[in-house]
């Protein structure tokens, strides 16, 4: 059974934001919503490191736990998706998510956030696979097409890896062995083991 995971190799990430625009491109994500982002710590100083982050598709997903309308569900691949028809835009998932993944389209009406949007691991939503309705609400369903998330596929330095957790770990382990040093599987404790 595949367990889909993201891994960002901080020693490879160069903050080129290719993952960010690949996502925008693939799903026509509007201005103001960013399903993925790159964060640089110690910016401009020795030790500067960048990491790309989106929804990590946690095993015990906090968003799912706190959602008042229970709109989240986890696929058999371990991908955490949500149903926008149920979402009420309360913002609780944004409070709870360790990674800041949930996004809200900017709306003018007072107090309302609009329906939450987040990374789908390019797996769409509850609508029919690859249907127009699914595309309009969640973007393209690459998993159904048999490909992997575009952000990782297009990563300029192959820092961002996506796919079955075991394979991702193998690829990363190989790199770490070559480099020497301890693995730094960023976010995995929180997302997958915590």
């Amino acid at each position: 059974m595949a367990r889909m995971k993201f891994l960002c190799d901080a020693d490879r990430c160069i903050e080129c934001n290719g993952c960010v625009t690949a996502c925008k491109n693939e799903h026509e994500v509007p201005w103001g919503v960013n399903r993925r982002r790159v964060i640089t710590l110690d910016d401009g100083q020795p030790g500067e490191k960048s990491i790309s982050v989106a929804c990590m598709h946690c095993s015990d997903a906090p968003c799912q736990a706190v959602c008042p309308v229970d709109c989240f569900y986890t696929t058999d691949d371990g991908i955490v998706l949500h149903d926008k028809n149920l979402c009420i835009g309360c913002g609780y998932c944004f409070y709870a998510c360790p990674f800041g993944a949930p996004q809200y389209p900017q709306q003018s009406s007072f107090g309302a956030r609009g329906k939450m949007d987040k990374c789908t691991f390019c797996a769409g939503g509850p609508e029919d696979d690859m249907s127009q309705a699914e595309y309009e609400q969640y973007g393209r369903n690459r998993i159904a097409e048999g490909t992997l998330p575009l952000c990782a596929e297009m990563c300029s330095t192959k820092a961002l890896i996506a796919g079955d957790g075991d394979e991702v770990a193998d690829i990363y382990r190989e790199r770490v062995l070559r480099r020497g040093g301890r693995p730094q599987t960023w976010g995995w404790d929180t997302a997958y083991e915590g």
């Binding site: 903050e15 790159v38 964060i39 360790p98 800041g100 996004q103």
Partner: peptide
């Protein structure tokens, strides 16, 4: 982070847990 928005420049927020 080049992406702007509340919390966008924070990788992990302990407060969420």
């Amino acid at each position: 982070s080049a992406v702007k928005g509340e919390g966008a420049n924070v990788l992990m927020q302990p407060g969420g847990e």
